[in-house]
Amino acid sequence: MRKTLVLIEHTQGQLRQTSLHALGAASELAAVEGGTTEALVMGHGVGAVVDALRSLGCARIWAVDHPQLADLTADRCADVIAQTVKATEPSFVLAAASTFSKDLLPRAAALLDAGMISDVVGLKKEGDETVFKRVQFAGNVISTVQLSGALKFLTIRPSAFPMANRNATQSEVQDFPWQPAANVTWTQVVSREERVEGRPDATEARIVVSGGRAFKNSEDFERVVGGLADALGAAVGSSRALVDAGITPNSLQIGQTGKVVAPELYIALGISGAIQHMAGMKDSKVIVAVNKDPDAPVFEAADYGLVADVYETIPEWTRRIKGS
């Protein structure tokens, strides 16, 4: 029987929403390939994450709870995945495309001599084969790709697959006895920035307000972009230009080499619309662009474009929301 092993991601003891999309993709895969979905949770103290997973339709949840997994570095995680795969023999290993899974999944694939497709946005049966659609060339090309071998690795774009449904049956939970090699020196994590609480993550939000080079410093960005985002209950994002200038942290970058988002509403403020930026947001349901240059390329992709100065218009918008 075909099985898909879904790698679950969590931060600060919470299941990440992107993993629900990974489980959703696994059920689409099961619909064309047949078979069941199992989940793999790695970490130290993962009880709450496992509990949050139990009503999501997995045939089984593998829990690997180990003190050496307090830091989920690629070398540790790839070793866990390799051991789990050898013992449970899935046909697919699947995860949401995030910096977490991008770091460790290819490493695990190599340990198991398996091929891998990144950033899958669709799948379908063609003859006896399942083929995958993925995005490349900064979003300029959608390719249809075939993957051979008994074991296949995939990362999926969360925005392209629905979240898994909750149901009444509780998944069975089983501990997996990971055996870390005795004499390895794992990569040491020296420090880690945690995402600041308060605003949602851009990959998980219904609305994203994003700012570009129009903003001269962090205070202005926070006041204007952050102000509107908070008024709308939205996440914030930014172009690479602001990250490079040190005005926004890298975790806000949207684009080919940053986060890929597809919210219901994406509001681009003072962003020109370079292809590398659009690669990260053009699948949003509704795009709004505010830019003072009427010829800015961002208007070509925007459902609603307003030629205006963001410093004047946006604080006014925020005031109106607060006033109403």
Partner: peptide, 11 residues
């Protein structure tokens, strides 16, 4: 390292 959550430093 640039991660989704921010900077992670590894040795």
């Amino acid at each position: 390292r640039e991660t989704d959550a921010g900077i992670e430093k590894v040795q």
